[in-house]
Design a binder for these strands. Structure first.
Lengths: 233, 233
DNA sequence: GTCTATAGTTGGATAGAC
DNA sequence: GTCTATCCAACTATAGAC
């Protein structure tokens, strides 16, 4: 799908596909077995190549999986930042809570809409990525998400100026919990009553936004008990 | 703490502690490394015993970890069911959303209050338990949670009778996402802005309940678009 | 750039002494 | 009931031919 020149030699590199196949297999297996549960053997077998080829291209299991995760997650976070840039530019810095939460969620759903297959992969990888205990994964998670998080928390502080930052951070964590749990999809305590997620995608987005917006607006300790200028419902 | 007779021979079994040490070590390591990341060797080393002792007592890695997880999780779910029993008995079947969510959450916090050490362990184990991809863990998760979930969903249906069950199930999943994410604690995208969870325990419980109650009340498609008897705010 | 072959660890589980 | 010793499978990574 995506042509990338770069390390390619001067020829047309007729089979540059090996790296891609390795990344595809790596992300697929990581999504269903996590970091420790995914072996280089399983990856290379699924990619129809050899252990040595994988180590030639990536050097180690860690580097291969990091590359696969960054490839999938980083574009989504870039869209999240672009979305909030656009929002703040068009509204002089004050953006509603709904708009913020939707801007954070929508990039994932856009991927889903553009390509359901890629959307499914994104959800599966992101769910495992959020949950994996391995230190390498945690480190990468922090690197990829810290800037986005700071950006959205800043905006949230402007949207609800009578709340403390710590308070908003907690509510935003609640919101992230909702998102992560939804991404994990098939998951959790449901096999007879509530089968996976029986809703069209855009509906779930709206439901998450309305759920979390209500939660954010409901909660929290005001910044100062006596002098709230005027922003209290 | 808990005496259990049973397989013990007729003597006073002066060192029956090995099984307990194995369970303790297993849950500790599972909490920080997941199912696949936890080796029998690491468990037995932490429990200061041998591989053979572990296999003598439990037969396999799977059986040992299942026993450790059940021991920690099952009592909490029992309390959840007892709490909803009590609520429904004292209010003739109609319980408010707040009361339901609090009843679901409180058992975990009670453990925390009775023993902060046990509370910490519960949180860590439960967080990993909710997130672990391994099939054995998923199966156990379903077995332990399905009855509790059905019970709470039934009650929720009575508390918000103008909503469909599927709809309530989705909102309850959102609520579970919040809880799981909070239990995972240290976790997620925070290292400078919002350090772990800088709130007293009971405060977080209240915050979760108010967040999710507002979310549950805000959202959803009514059961029938035209004939809503009177429960629509 | 990709392969086969292999080095060197570490995994779960068992045998048999005590 | 607990140990040491061991089996065998699977793992990551590398060497060296092509």
């Amino acid at each position: 799908m995506v042509e990338h020149l770069g390390k390619a030699p001067s020829s047309a590199t007729p089979h540059r596909a090996t790296k891609q196949r390795l990344l595809d297999a790596a992300e697929l297996l990581f999504a269903s077995h996590g970091f420790e549960g995914t072996s280089m053997r399983a990856i290379t077998q699924a990619a129809d190549t050899s252990l040595s080829a994988a180590n030639y291209h990536f050097g180690s299991k860690q580097a291969l999986l990091e590359a696969a995760l960054v490839r999938r997650i980083e574009p989504v976070n870039r869209r999240r930042v672009e979305a909030i840039d656009a929002l703040e530019k068009s509204s002089e810095g004050v953006v509603s809570v709904e708009a913020l939460l939707e801007a954070f969620l929508r990039p994932g759903f856009e991927v889903q809409r553009e390509s359901p297959e890629e959307g499914r992969r994104l959800r599966e990888v992101a769910a495992r990525f959020s949950a994996d205990p391995h230190e390498i994964v945690s480190k990468l998670k922090f690197e990829l998400f810290a800037p986005v998080m700071r950006r959205y928390l800043d905006a949230l502080e402007r949207a609800l100026p009578d709340r403390t930052r710590e308070d908003l951070a907690l509510d935003f964590q609640f919101f992230l919990g909702v998102m992560i749990h939804v991404m994990s999809g098939k998951n959790v305590f449901s096999r007879d009553h509530a089968d996976p997620m029986p809703y069209a995608d855009e509906t779930i987005l709206d439901r998450m936004v309305s759920f979390a917006t209500a939660g954010l607006r409901a909660g929290g300790v005001p910044r100062a008990p006596e002098s709230t200028p005027g922003a209290g419902s």
